[in-house]
Design a protein around this nucleic acid. Sequence first.
RNA 1: UCCUGGGUAGCUCAGCUGGUAGAGCAGGUGGCUGUUAACCACCGGGUCGGGGGUUCGAGUCCCUCCCCAGGAGCCA
Length: 441
Amino acid sequence: MPPIVAIRDLARFVGEQVTLQGWVTHRRSKGRIAFLVVRDGSGNCQAVASVQDVSADQFEQLARLTHESAVRLTGVVREDERAPGGFELQLAGVETVQLAEEYPIGRKEHGIEFLLDHRHLWLRHKGPWAVMRIRDEIVKACRDFMYERDFLLIDSPILTPAACEGTSTLFETDYFGAPAYLSQSGQLYVEPACIAHGKVYCFGPTFRAEKSDTRRHLTEFWMIEPEIAWAGLDEIMALAEQMISHIVARVLERRSEELAILERDTTKLESVTPPFPRLSYDDVAERLTRPDIVARAQQAGAPPFQPGSDLGALDETILGEMFDRPLIIHRYPTAVKAFYMEPDPERPDRALCMDIIAPEGYGEIIGGSQRIHDHELLARRIDENGLPEQAFRWYLDIRRFGTVPHAGFGMGIERLVAWISGARHTREAIPYPRTLRRLYP
RNA sequence: UCCUGGGUAGCUCAGCUGGUAGAGCAGGUGGCUGUUAACCACCGGGUCGGGGGUUCGAGUCCCUCCCCAGGAGCCA
């Protein structure tokens, strides 16, 4: 029996007889010679057979193979310039494992709705294949980065009793007769854990029932959230910029083939190195009220920027385009930010927080802050925001027993994947996207 | 929720000032010994998103509802 070989390793078997297990992506039957291209998950390979190479029955079988049929192909590996990839299989035997039915996804263009309806099949195609491999590399790079810096993984619960941030909408579910909610952030749960371990992070799915209906939004998305005791805004800005740089460098190094498949302009990724530009909210507000920027925003159809309010999506895009690497914006007005953010002691109407905006219009990829560690102040904020104090008792407790300054941030994985891979929608950055209008497949 | 653009064959789309519906791909049949999204010939394939209206006549005009895409708001 010839060895079963992955297409990626074919170069090591030139001149030898091997078996490939895969799926038919193309068939070009040309009279008494037939070409077959198969995919096995590790790559693509052309196989060729002429009538005299195989039995009449097998040649007939070859000619009938349909798109996505599962096959075992046995033959000798040959180097040949005419073959895509440089190697091909000279067929000696074909086994049809399953003759596929008429395959819905054609070789021409399709709309995004059709492709997402067939996501279970679309995952096989080279674009999604490359994006998923980049996603895998990004996730691994995140975990390695955390591990190498002595951050401990603390998984946060997905079923929670109440809101982490009062503003966002939650998915409600029935918990033995009582309401429970799908977590929209693990932050509140890593804060106590950083008191136990110093440096921690959580990494898991989060859920937001927001009516946000853009290509940047999912209702279920993955987020990595580091949290550090004895740290403030400066420490998390430095950590975030190192983390993003580390991830981008790692993808450039190990997933260049996938970036090439996606035709990603890698020069735009190579410039992503520390330090990132840092602007305060007030710097940004000044820029956004300059006449030329105002004119540009108006032309793009952006609602006019109001000093003191949060930034709009187009404001972020315009700001992001001013730099060749991610932009850190810090010290937003306390009034527009979450209740748990520490006020700047030098200017209490500004919070010690930061957002990081990805270049090329991919939007906010990180949001973080120093957390309020004073019990009285936090209790007042919870009250002012109309949040149920009962539900936050445990969270307030942390401020009663050895409270210290601490800070952390959340990074959205799909936006990061979309930006790095150049995908048009965050929906393409997750295997099975959930959006306002999609819960299938 | 609002703004803009769409909905015609399995898919992607064309269809002029209203006159009985088209292409490419996919599928089927036949041909072809080095193809690269192979090619050539032939064949099958339609509730023109639903409902109502105007008209001798509606894919085309009007009303209404549904669905989709892009954007805004909110957010990662």
